[in-house]
Amino acid sequence: MATHTVSAPAARRGRRPADQHTAVTGRRWWSELGWRYVVAGLAIVYAGFPILYVISASFASGGTLTGSNQLFGTITGDNYAALNDTRFWSWVSNTLVIATVTALGTVLMGAAAAYAFSRFRFTGRRVGLTTLLVIQMFPQLLAFVAVFLLLLALGDVVPALGLNSRLALIMVYLGGALGVNTFLMYGFFNTVPKELDEAAKIDGATHAQVYWTIILRLVSPILAVVGLLSFISSFSDFLLAKLILQSEENWTLAVGLYQWVADRLSANWGLFAAGAVISAVPVVLLFIFLQKYIVGGLTAGSVKG
């Protein structure tokens, strides 16, 4: 008949070996993994509470935040219905057009410049890369006065590119983002094996065919990241849009929503919260759509070793 013995230390502590092993395992799990769940939970609460508060304020009655201290204490759609009596949807249209065109232009221009710097060897290549690196160190805010004076003078010659022009705002966005995005894409393009280019050229492909049909497909993750960042940046920008767009019908969402709460005596926070909730939807949908490209592999399956 088999007998089980209990070690003296375990017996003195009143624990069986299995209980001791479970305690050690629990402490190890907490030290290696458990505390991370606590930190993640606190981070989710910290990031999610402002979102819940804004959503609650958008459904609250009245135009102040005092009635939103209790989350979802009152639920009404008056704030959303009131948006139809404003220029809100015109601002949404302006913002989507500006952000979409800026994102597409940034991706196309940045990818073309990055491909040229990565694949071609020409005079001034190193100087151009260094210049891009230096330019991206200075924030675009430093050029506010220069941009304003430039558009003011340019509007006398080409009104479509002067102040109060959405096209002019797009051009400013494209110029400001070209340097940093080109340098970002350049490093990504360098990771694509040049043997793919050479193999395609042997088969008779031109530089344009290599670029459009091979390279761009392999660098789709960085294109998605740059497009998403460019869209979000121009979608939420306030300073440049406020500087250039002067008439109410040309305002973007950031400028228009700010005007509703700029005057504290007549601030309508309920209307502002409703507009903020709706304006967040395009960004969330775009992020969900591009997520598979962002997390996708770079050249998975393109080269067999």
Rank of each mutant, 00 (worst) to 15 (best):
M1I: 14
T3K: 04
A18K: 10
A23I: 11
G26W: 15
W29Y: 14
E32Q: 13
G34C: 06
V45A: 04
P50D: 11
I51R: 07
I51V: 15
L52H: 12
A57N: 01
A60H: 05
T64M: 03
L65F: 15
S68M: 05
F72H: 07
G73Y: 14
D78Y: 10
A81E: 12
A82N: 06
A82H: 10
A82K: 09
A82V: 11
N84I: 06
D85Q: 07
F88L: 00
A99Q: 03
T100L: 02
L104A: 10
M109A: 09
A114F: 04
F117K: 01
F120E: 01
T123Q: 03
G128D: 07
L129P: 00
L129H: 03
V134N: 03
V134S: 00
L141N: 12
A143Y: 15
F144C: 07
F148H: 14
L149D: 11
L151H: 10
L151E: 06
L154W: 14
G155A: 05
L161R: 01
R166F: 12
L167M: 04
L167Y: 14
G175D: 11
G175F: 13
G187N: 01
N190E: 03
E195C: 05
E198W: 12
A199C: 06
G204E: 12
A205N: 03
H207T: 06
A208M: 12
Q209S: 09
Q209D: 12
V210Q: 00
Y211S: 04
T213R: 15
A224P: 04
L229P: 05
L229H: 09
I232F: 12
I244F: 14
Q246L: 14
Q246V: 12
S247K: 11
N250Y: 15
A254T: 05
L257A: 05
W260R: 01
V261H: 04
V261K: 00
R264H: 10
A267D: 09
N268F: 06
L271F: 08
A274Y: 05
V277A: 00
A280S: 10
A280T: 13
P282V: 02
V283W: 03
L285F: 08
L285G: 00
F287K: 04
I288K: 02
K292A: 05
I294D: 02
L298M: 11
L298A: 09
S302G: 07
G305T: 02
G305P: 06
